[in-house]
Design a binder for these strands. Structure first.
Length: 681
RNA sequence: GGCGGUGUAGCUCAGCUGGUAGAGCAGUGGAAUCAUAAUCCAUAGGUCGGGGGUUCAAGUCCCUCCGCCGCUACCA
């Protein structure tokens, strides 16, 4: 391996950065990169904002600004908060730049020329009023699954189902509220399926990849890879460079990962060696590592590698350390409910290193992790302040007061030799863990060094030997100072700001970031070396500092997700005429039989009597009614609904039920006994 | 219903290819006093979700059941 290229998933420029982002894709990558730099490896760290796509177009429209203005704002915001947090990107670019447009179009054209993009005609909603096609998220309606209003064309936020926009009941245009019409539109599709066997072969060799990534891919292979649309009818994005597609844009998921390449190119231009990007992208001796969250596995482990295979000239990812998610105080993060800790707000109140430390200590490496403010406080206080910070402080103050600098070491005893061994082994042990992306264990190993050093200090009792055996005391303090130096270097990847402060306190000039990892355990301090000004490294965090944060989240947790009905639903559904209504035939029906539909959680099969006629209907009320509760009830059904097959069973009608705010259903029945079959008007 | 994950000391979690149950925090007792009242030592007797099986030996493999979490299917 000659060089390493590291990327973090491109953050989407429609909102600020929160802790969930950091824990998954950013902090682990930054630690890895900082470690590799100190190993003196050729490593490049690339990231940038993802600035195209529908959600940004919608958000901009809502705020009555242009998409460009919106992404300018969030680009600046991300860059600022990441910088304050200590993220050490070599380049933090953005996908709206001309260089990225050019690069993406060239990539697209390459695939187009190789005939792996094929044309398909699909039906899509078109809004006559806005005179444009509506992307999935631009059309809303009633969710066909949970019947709630406000479902988007791609997904229903209420029940979490992913949808096809054409499934929506009573669709309307999110912008103007008018119902759209279905129209044919042409799109280019990437023949992902053509690459399935190559992908399977490629992934089969990745023995040491994380299980979650491999399992996820196996699942996709089992389903079979089909075709994926790569163009969109949109105005905000990168124009698709293909004849007949001038008015369409490249779909964001296609061009976003290409951003890794254009950001590398931009970096190469900036350092005045415009061709240098090729060393990173076209040389198989480069190790390409993508840090992502688990939501991004499909794109990075399947689609993107397939694109690279199709392209032909680029290297494939060598590793994709995907992390799980971070929860907050036991609940899922929710940006729409403002249930999140925003990085910018955190940094206005607390220093970056304690958060870096805590997030690394609970990194969701193998399963979802939980961030709590009290544990954050506790680990800052008992680990950073008490164990690490206090050791550094007690050593430096002692050395300065008693020896006015670094004392010379004398003869070594067993304890001294044990201490030296710990310092020598630590860079190797912690390095191995960082190499394998095991942040949590790496941090534990780091703290163990500090714990051992504290014990060493205690056992040697320099405060006692100071009076009885000054040379013994000097040896102890000499080694403690070396422990401080080792810790300063080894903490750099996770605690870069504190490491730099410690370096200065040791009286060193230059930067800790320039030091060599492999030399971290060496005894290089010269006797007589003058120490710098000591200061408290980690302040304790008081209850009263975190209480407001806990309170805020508790309040936010009660927020309802913004209901579309309240905010955005176009007033009322359009009024219908009496004629329209009279076309719906509602009748009373007697439930003769009811039973659960096998292999379905929500369905009941009902046999009903409507006048003289017996029918079968299937209703999604199994979660609300036991079958026997319904038998003998007289209910209201829509009698002239088109029959449909549901899980293989024919359903001839639909029963009516009311839903309360908690989602509980109540079946409608007449207020006094009425003959079944009677019309409901 | 299917797929994946998960259920280990009060809390948060480690336990890789099977061999006498671990760490940190909290708690309790003690030592020490250089230091941000910091540190260090001792102390956890937990049916490793339940049951069954394989084995000389099982948190660790197999079967089955139960509880959570995520994705996914069914709501005319």
């Amino acid at each position: 391996m000659k060089r390493i290229l590291v990327t973090s998933a491109l953050p989407y420029a429609n909102g600020p950065i929160h802790l969930g982002h950091l824990a998954g894709a950013y902090l682990p990558a930054d630690v890895y990169v900082r470690y590799q730099r100190m190993k003196k490896r050729d490593v490049l760290y690339i990231c940038g904002t993802d600035e195209h796509g529908v959600p940004i177009a919608i958000a901009a429209e809502k705020q009555s600004i242009t998409p460009q203005q919106l992404v300018d704002r969030y680009y600046a915001d991300h860059l600022d908060t990441f910088t304050r947090f200590g993220m050490s990107f070599d380049n933090f670019s953005r996908t709206s730049r001309p260089l990225h447009h050019k690069t993406s179009q060239a990539f697209f054209q390459n695939l187009y020329n190789k005939n792996v993009l094929v044309e398909r005609t699909v039906q899509q909603f078109y809004c006559d009023t806005c005179r444009r096609f509506l992307a999935d998220r631009f059309v809303e309606g009633i969710c066909p699954r949970c019947q709630q209003p406000g479902a988007r064309g791609d997904q229903c936020e209420k029940c979490g189902s992913s949808l096809e926009q054409t499934e929506l009941i009573k669709p309307y245009c999110k912008v103007c509220g008018h119902p759209p019409v279905l129209k044919d539109t042409r799109h280019l599709f990437f023949k992902l399926g053509d690459f399935q066997s190559r992908l399977e072969t490629w992934l089969a060799e990745k023995k040491n990849w994380k299980e979650n990534v491999l399992n996820y891919c196996r699942g996709w292979f089992k389903e079979g890879l089909g075709e994926r649309a790569v163009t969109r009818d949109l105005k905000w994005g990168i124009p698709a460079p293909a004849a007949g597609y001038e008015d369409k844009m490249i779909y964001v998921w296609f061009e976003a990962p290409i951003g890794y390449i254009s950001a590398t190119k931009e970096w190469a231009e900036r350092i005045g060696q415009p061709d240098k990007w090729k060393e990173y992208w076209m040389d198989s001796r480069t190790k390409l590592v993508h840090f992502i969250g688990k939501d991004n596995i499909v794109f990075h482990a399947i689609i993107w590698p397939a694109m690279i295979m199709a392209h032909g000239d680029l290297i494939l990812p060598a590793d994709i350390p995907a992390n799980e998610f971070l929860n907050l105080q036991g609940e899922k993060l929710s940006t729409s409910r403002n249930y999140a800790v925003w990085l910018g707000e955190y940094l206005d109140k607390f220093p970056p290193d304690p958060l870096r430390y805590y997030l690394a200590a609970i990194a969701p490496e193998s399963k979802d992790a939980d961030f709590t403010w009290t544990e954050f406080q506790q680990r800052n206080n008992s680990e950073l302040a008490d164990i690490l910070g206090n050791f550094i402080n007690r050593t430096l103050t002692f050395a300065k007061r008693q020896f006015n600098g670094v004392p010379a070491a004398g003869e070594l005893n067993d304890l001294d030799r044990a201490m030296i061994r710990v310092l020598e082994k630590a860079p190797v042990e912690i390095g191995d863990l960082f190499e394998r992306y095991e942040l949590r264990r790496g941090l534990t190993a780091l703290m163990d060094v500090a714990r051992f050093a504290n014990k060493y200090f205690n056992d040697q009792q320099p405060w006692a030997t100071l009076k009885t055996d000054r040379s013994r005391c000097a040896t102890t303090i000499n080694l403690c100072l070396h422990a401080v130096q080792t810790l300063a270097i080894l903490m750099e990847p996770v605690l870069p700001f504190s490491a730099e402060k410690t370096w200065a306190m040791l009286g060193h000039t230059g930067s800790v970031h320039q030091q060599s990892w492999d030399e971290a355990g060496s005894l290089t301090l010269k006797p007589g070396h003058r120490l710098g000004q000591e200061q408290i490294l980690f302040n304790k965090i008081e209850d009263k500092q975190i209480q407001p944060e806990i309170d805020r989240l508790a309040a936010a947790s009660k927020n309802q997700p913004p209901t579309v009905a309240a905010a955005e639903t176009p007033a009322e559904p359009a009024k219908i005429s009496y004629d329209d209504f009279s076309r719906v035939q509602l009748r009373l029906a007697l439930v003769l039989k009811a039973e659960k539909v096998e292999k379905a959680d929500k369905l009941l099969r009902l046999e009903i009597q409507v006048g003289d006629e017996k029918r079968q209907i299937v209703a999604g009320i199994a979660k609300h009614y036991a079958p026997e509760q319904l038998i003998g009830k007289t209910i209201v059904v829509v009698a002239n609904l088109q029959p449909a097959k549901i899980r293989g069973l024919e359903s001839n009608g639909m029963l009516l039920a009311a839903e309360d705010e908690t989602g509980q259903l109540a079946v409608l029945t007449p207020d006094r006994p009425v003959q079944c079959g009677a019309k409901v008007k």
